[in-house]
Design a protein around this nucleic acid. Sequence first.
DNA 1: CGTGAATACCGCCAGT
DNA 2: ATACTGGCGGTATTCA
Length: 132
Amino acid sequence: VARQLVVFLKRPGGQAQFSTMLSLQRGDAFDDLHAWIGENLGADLSIPHLAAKAGMTDRTFLRRYKQATGCSPAKAIERLRVEAAQRRLCDAREPIKRVAARCGFGSEETMRRSFARIARVSPQDYRARFSR
DNA sequence: CGTGAATACCGCCAGT
DNA sequence: ATACTGGCGGTATTCA
């Protein structure tokens, strides 16, 4: 049910068919980490920090993460951020700049570029279509 | 939209 | 011999 709802939510502008959170949180040993990241998008999510948090060296963390999830940490985090931002953009009252900050983007510009890469729509366009 | 600086990522390889 | 690990150095990406 969750998937269908998300698919509907993203259809008009994006490519992804369902939530990253859903596809990422299935089975692997990184479930805990993913959950934590989802609620701490503003924290230090650098490889060195995440690796330490997971009790691994950078090299091993990178290797195992990709092995288990199929994609790199940075890619996954970027997707998580964009999805979080999309949810927030649905509320037309929150300034885009603040959405960017709350989702962990270093700047509005950074968020814009991530949207272009992943959702293929600008934050403004996304909001124009889904905010209420 | 381009750019220098910073990071992420990965091949290689010796060591367990 | 197979399976991992993790430091190093360089390339590729991303950030601001």
